[in-house]
Design a protein around this nucleic acid. Structure first.
Lengths: 346, 346
DNA sequence: ATGAAAGCGCTAACAT
DNA sequence: ATGTTAGCGCTTTCAT
């Protein structure tokens, strides 16, 4: 099964796909168990038999049956990635990073979309848990105790969700938000609003707290509007609410929302950044070419995906608790583009 | 395992996760096979026993072991989706559509990224084939004979790749390209270039042919530049090559490339659309808010994903050959935004 | 170092 | 309608 039809040296595809270790055993005159060993723990078998077996496997175009392997060994070589909305560009990067790292380790990716519902998330998690070696929960909406319980029974890594006892990768947007506030304050803004995302989002609260405290440091008070859905569509309502606060600048829960806001502001004839500055979060695909290009907190999204997988694999191998750090904080930085500028003179 | 910790009415989570049909059988006093039946084909079992069994299953928090089920039944309830680049926004829609439809049918999605390599695609396909009930190949780079061979042994649906004997969903961009050419010609353009995508892409050739023939219909000759990678990065080289042809308008292989071109043109101080018009393909996320917003061929991407799954499921159920249409053509339409305008006077 | 045998959890004939 | 009996393909003791 190579592209040009040269499956094994000198042999045409033979009984392709239904070859079992028994066939190999028969062909090589050894027991099936020996074949199994030769294939999964080559060091536990005599060199010459091992090579005979491996050659036969190649000849017969043997592909191990993962279900059977899983059934007896308990390992599925598959990892589930749960995202709350497969449509959100933020997750694309995550998916990609995870996929990369998994492939490198020879594992498969089961993608699950929880549609932003804690109930569905929990349901689906229950369904897949037995089919995977571990789970990566991106921006989980699950209550803390559920999360802890799940993590006790199954290797789990969360992304952007920090719960005691659960290893996690968190993108340090709060730190970035400090930078964003400094940036805006230095541009003369005094009325800065946080445009909040979905209610169950842990990251959302973390970001709001960061904004508030950064503001407080300057003796200012953060304004909060929302909650809004983490989508472009929600941007219209958000923009209107935002204008109503009298803020001269805002930091939004994520870029999707920011892009939606930009759109609505243009629609209402309000210029960005001369009349109002907008700062997003994440730096997703599109943030650099929307109009005006968005000032945002650049998050190492793919890296987060890769990191989550690495941590999970580490946990799978180590078995014990001697695993490294419980939570990995990934730094963000402010990327200034054209949606932020000096505060308007009043 | 419900979000708030109320797993079964009145019962705390019990032996969670390792409950088998035997436990249920023991509890209800029936044979394991009866439990199996009650759970998978409820109509084949007496109503009262069935209900007892179902209640017990719920009480014990039973979750079927998919590997075991797969091993004995041959069905994995999983479908693989192979994409050539999980990073390409075009696939996001596909993934999403597929995921939706699969969930509705209770199947899981195994996502595979082939990194644009035919060899890797073939390899990975070999690995997953036994773990899934069927496969959806998005923009496959596999040679025709390989594809035919694979499809003979496993339910396969291709997307944007038409090969005899393989059922497929194809987005009718060629038809859209006709519309695009009409649009451009009516704006006075006479020199229109096609900015070609990756060499192994079937869709790429189809689009080029469509452009050439649409041009011919007006007694004009299509210009071709490329090939280029289907990415924004490739847009720079593409823009430069494009300008060199003297064309006043272009249609690009996809939006990613078009957005890259737009960027490069701006960089070189060339105004779109007064100096040159750009038309993309697909209408991906971002096409409507880049600058200027992109005139493009709107493709029903999510629908394509859903359709592919439907066709696959149909094939899985019907088993026989009485399945419907071999290839589903999905219409596209031209969405005119601001990147196309009247040809410049010479 | 290798073989024999048991079994992972489930489904699917075949009986009853 | 339900129970009995074999496996599915593999890994894993336990012998040898």
């Amino acid at each position: 099964m190579t592209p040009e039809g040269a499956p094994a040296p000198g042999t045409a595809t033979r009984r392709d796909g239904r070859v079992t270790i028994n066939d190999i055993a028969a062909l090589t005159g050894v027991a099936a168990s020996t074949v199994s060993r030769a294939l999964s723990r080559p060091d536990r078998v005599n060199r010459v038999t091992r090579e005979r077996i491996q050659a036969a496997a190649r000849d017969l175009n043997y592909v191990p049956n993962t279900q059977a392997r899983a059934l007896s060994s308990g390992r599925t070589d598959t990892v589930a990635l749960l995202v709350s909305d497969a449509t959100n560009p933020f997750y694309f990067g995550l998916i990609r990073g995870a996929q990369q790292q998994l492939r490198a380790a020879g594992l498969a990716l089961l993608l699950v979309d929880t549609e932003d519902s804690p109930e569905l998330e929990n349901d689906l998690l229950g369904k897949v848990r037995r089919s995977v070696d571990g789970v990566i929960l991106a921006a989980s909406r699950l209550p803390e105790k559920t999360l802890t319980a799940v993590a006790a029974e199954l290797p789990v890594i969360t992304i952007n969700r920090n719960v005691p006892g659960v290893r996690s990768v968190v993108i340090d947007s709060p730190d970035g938000i400090m930078q964003a506030v400094e940036h805006l304050v230095s541009l003369g803004h005094r009325q800065i609003a946080y445009v909040a995302g979905p209610p169950f989002s842990w990251a959302n609260e973390a970001r709001w707290r960061a904004l508030r405290s950064a503001m407080a440091r300057h003796g200012l008070t953060g304004i909060r509007v929302g909650p809004f859905g983490a989508s472009r569509r929600s941007g219209s309502a958000a923009a209107d609410a935002l204008l109503n606060t009298g803020a001269t600048a805002c930091v939004t829960f994520n870029d999707l929302l920011a892009i939606g806001i930009l759109h609505r502001l243009a629609e209402r004839g309000i210029d960005v950044p001369t009349e109002i500055s907008v700062v997003g979060c994440d730096d997703i695909f599109g943030a650099d070419f929307c109009s005006p290009p968005l000032t945002t907190l650049t998050a190492p999204i793919e890296q987060a995906g890769r990191m989550a997988v690495s941590m999970l694999l580490e946990q799978l191998d180590d078995l014990g608790e001697k695993t490294s750090r419980r939570t990995q904080l990934l730094p963000t930085h402010l990327t200034v583009r054209r949606s932020s500028g000096p505060a308007p003179r009043r």
